[in-house]
Computed example of a mutant assay.
Amino acid sequence: MNIAVLSGKGGTGKTTVSTNLALALKANYIDCDVEEPNGFLFLKPKVETEEKVMVEYPVIDDNNCNLCGACVNVCEFNALAKVKDDIMLFQKLCHGCGACEIVCKYGSLTYDKREIGKIEKGVAKNISCSRGILNISEPMAVPVIRELLKNLSDEINLIDCPPGTSCNVVNSLKYADGAILVTEPSEFGLHDLKMAVELVKMHNIPFGIVINKDDGKDNIVKKYCREEKIGLIGTIPYGKDTAVLYSKGEILYDDMQHKIVFDKLSKKTREVLLWS
């Protein structure tokens, strides 16, 4: 089963929930926040394998090109531009769709590959850990996410999604059988939670909510869950001890009090997501 952990915005505690819940569920941890993959800072796995992520881009044979501009016209991503006596290529805008090669009547286009990121895999605390890392200045994270989520095991896989509701999150959700939405009891938290709820509903993915930094009161998020009949998986209390452990980069699940919290979340996750 693949469980996606997401949030409407950054800073709600998504990675905190993902890393600790992966330990409680004895699940494989997969960090899809490839632009800022910080789950390894807490789990501290020993990286055993590293694999480059490559994407294709067109190479133009200037000696054979007659500057007809057909490749420029067919490119939906504006990766090609015709200027005076040349066809310019903007590599980082290219999606490698192959349309330019198809429309070129003179065989002036071929494809080469370039590196945009990497995949790291290792083991920590008896669970498998993997993450994607997008190279600095690269604009497109989706190819790295796709490569990271390719050939997932048949075990429990916990997918730590990117923050927000962008195409990076959508591509992570394609592999999900269930979802956990992490939020905080604030107006901003509720506002962005609603967007995340609409996203998982759009994909018909069973989901439940975890409230981080919970104040112990009947806050606006709890009221929202009741009104919308959304399953509340559980809460993580707002306290100084949690903040201290987090600031030190320590895993909360190693602390007995927090272990009880995440074991309860683990049990409730199975109930809310109708998981047998």
Rank of each mutant, 00 (worst) to 15 (best):
I156D: 01
D192P: 01
P185F: 11
H191K: 09
A176K: 09
V210P: 12
L193S: 08
V169W: 12
P162C: 11
L173K: 04
T183C: 05
V169H: 15
E198F: 14
I211L: 04
N212Y: 09
R146I: 06
P162I: 10
V144S: 05
H203L: 11
G216E: 07
P143C: 01
P163A: 13
L181I: 15
I209A: 10
E155A: 12
R146A: 09
I180P: 02
E187T: 03
V182F: 14
I180C: 03
S186R: 13
E155P: 13
P163S: 03
A141R: 06
L148F: 01
T165I: 09
K201S: 14
L190E: 01
K194P: 07
D215E: 14
K201G: 10
D177I: 07
G164W: 09
C167Y: 09
L173G: 12
N151W: 11
I209K: 15
G178Q: 06
N151K: 15
L181D: 00
T165K: 01
A196W: 11
S166L: 04
V142E: 04
R146K: 15
V197S: 13
I211M: 02
A179W: 06
D192W: 00
E187A: 08
D215I: 03
N204A: 14
E184L: 09
L152N: 12
K150Q: 07
A179D: 02
V144D: 00
E184V: 06
G178V: 04
H203S: 15
I156L: 07
K213P: 04
D154H: 15
E155M: 02
P185C: 05
P162H: 03
P185G: 06
P139G: 00
N157P: 04
E155Y: 06
K213N: 03
V170R: 10
M202F: 10
V182W: 08
G216C: 07
A176M: 09
L158M: 01
S186G: 10
